[in-house]
């Protein structure tokens, strides 16, 4: 068990150090993606014709293997964390842009008309009505983007130990220590689950106005909660 956390010195980090590095390399790109996706999505909402081409471009970017990205970027940004994070940020757009566009579009027409009729200008209406109501959809997108980013960081190992926990996979191979591979896989999975749970918590705190059950704010009738057997029955019916 001691050997499980005994990280080879070539990685220049303790186990916890690798976790910190991994989170930074995974979460900063998602944050950058969000900052980029918000105005992009707003443009897509405003000019409907823009949405299909934007969606098409983000999908094509997503289809580019990260290795190809690295080959191009390495000339500009070298063997650095940045080279790993730029593709990850670009990948997150494929999830975040449609999530925000759908969220903002899901605001009922009456609500928008009422806001306009009460004298909200476009900026105020966006910030105070559309965006808050889109929060559940945006966070749903962030959850997918975050988990996917946490798993994708590992490929950074290909450009000289920039893969954080992923570097353990490489070391497991060269030092013939399979427990390091287990460590890498399990730690990454636990990080993803914890990050996902944290985002769910953020959503619960931000949206006390959501009617869906299981929040403990208001006891819901039992009928609203599906029986554990219900999904299984649904599957059987397919």
């Amino acid at each position: 068990m001691n050997r499980f956390f005994d990280i080879p010195s070539d990685l220049q980090h303790s186990w916890l150090g690798l976790i910190g590095l991994h989170l930074r390399e995974a979460l900063l790109p998602v944050l950058a993606g969000l900052v980029l996706a918000l105005p992009l999505a707003q443009l897509c909402v405003r000019f409907r014709w823009l949405y299909p081409p934007v969606l098409w471009v983000t999908t094509v970017f997503y289809a580019i293997p990260s290795l190809a990205f690295f080959v191009v970027l390495i000339d500009y940004t070298g063997q650095t964390e940045l080279t790993v994070m730029i593709p990850l940020a670009v990948y997150s757009l494929v999830v975040l842009v449609p999530a925000i566009v759908d969220g903002v579009r899901s605001v009922p027409q009456e609500t928008l008309a009422a806001a306009t009729a009460m004298g909200f200008g476009p900026v105020r209406r966006y910030a105070q009505v559309q965006l808050p109501i889109a929060v559940p959809a945006i966070i749903a997108g962030l959850r997918v983007a975050t988990v996917s980013s946490i798993s994708l960081v590992s490929v950074g190992m290909l450009i000289g130990n920039q893969g954080a926990l992923g570097n353990l996979l490489h070391d497991a191979q060269i030092y013939n220590r399979p427990e390091l591979a287990w460590n890498s896989v399990l730690t990454t999975a636990v990080l993803a689950v914890l990050a996902d749970a944290a985002l769910v918590l953020v959503r619960v705190l931000l949206t006390p106005w959501m009617p869906s059950g299981g929040r403990g704010r208001r006891p819901k009738p039992a009928a609203d909660r599906p029986e554990p057997a219900a999904p299984a029955l649904k599957d059987a019916a397919r």
């Binding site: 609500t111 306009t116 009729a117 949206t207 106005w209």
Partner: peptide
């Protein structure tokens, strides 16, 4: 335009309330 609209109350089908605000905050909007 916005000053004009704020000088007229507007009621719409299905109320069009702000679902993310409490009742008292909805009423206090204008």
């Amino acid at each position: 335009v916005n000053a004009l609209r704020r000088s007229m109350g507007y009621v719409i089908q299905n109320a069009g309330l702000f679902q993310h605000r409490t009742i008292v905050d909805n009423i206090a909007t204008v």
